[in-house]
């Protein structure tokens, strides 16, 4: 990757303590986001409190005010690396019991058999673009275009944890019970978020989340 700061990065202030990085129209896929996240982990700028991945934006939150030049300098110093990030990403499989509340309605709307929807959904290999909305909720790239369907206008008051769903051009899995507007196709028994790991030694805290950005995901019908 040959992103250079002056040409392709745009920086926008997000309040006095945070800067939002984007790469504008050139962005395709989440690779630059995963690389930036890795750089922020391995070689963080001074005074960084945390970084957050958006769909095609990357947020750097600082403990104190820093200038735009300071952030630009850090971006310029990043070693993007030559290895493909996808090469070292994990593949995580989720067993799914299809038959969710919206499966039939989605099949009907797409003029497909239910089996066809299940086949297309479980044939694809997905990639975690970002975690957000709820703790551990993955926005998955790679949904079969024939299955894309805009979110419901009026969210359902409660969707259970483990619901495997489609929202717009993304697949996702509800990580905790919450209101939601995605179309539920089935459910998985695997936990996406287990806060108990957050009680133990600090080294285990990240295990509370089954997925991280860049991971590959497959759904296995059971």
């Amino acid at each position: 990757m040959d992103l250079s700061c002056e040409e392709k990065f745009q920086l926008k202030a997000y309040g006095p303590l945070a800067w939002l990085v984007s790469v504008g129209l050139q962005s395709s896929g989440g690779d630059w986001l995963y690389r930036l996240a890795r750089a922020a982990d391995e070689n963080p700028p001074e005074r960084l409190q945390e970084c957050v991945l958006g769909f095609d934006t990357f947020l750097l939150v600082f403990r104190e005010e820093v200038s735009q030049e300071f952030v630009e300098e850090w971006l310029l110093k990043i070693e993007w690396g030559v290895d493909e990030v996808s090469g070292d990403s994990r593949l995580i499989e989720f067993p799914v019991t299809y038959g969710g509340a919206d499966l039939e309605a989605l099949a009907e709307a797409k003029e497909m058999l239910v089996e066809e929807v299940v086949r297309r959904h479980s044939d694809a290999e997905y990639r975690v673009r970002l975690l957000g909305f709820s703790p551990g909720f993955p926005y998955l790239d790679g949904l079969d275009e024939a299955l894309c369907m805009a979110r419901k206008d009026i969210p359902v008051p409660r969707i259970e944890a483990g619901a495997v769903a489609i929202g717009g051009s993304h697949a996702g899995i509800y990580s905790i019970a919450s209101p939601g507007g995605w179309h539920v196709l089935g459910r998985t028994s695997s936990a996406l978020f287990d806060p108990e790991f957050g009680r133990g030694e600090t080294g285990k805290w990240k295990d509370a989340f089954a997925l991280k950005p860049g991971d590959r995901v497959r759904f296995l019908p059971v």
């Binding site: 409190q49 945390e50 970002l130 975690l131 978020f193």
Partner: peptide, 9 residues
């Protein structure tokens, strides 16, 4: 608990 927003928390 700052620092966990990237995991959705």
């Amino acid at each position: 608990r700052p620092g966990w927003r990237r995991f959705g928390l």
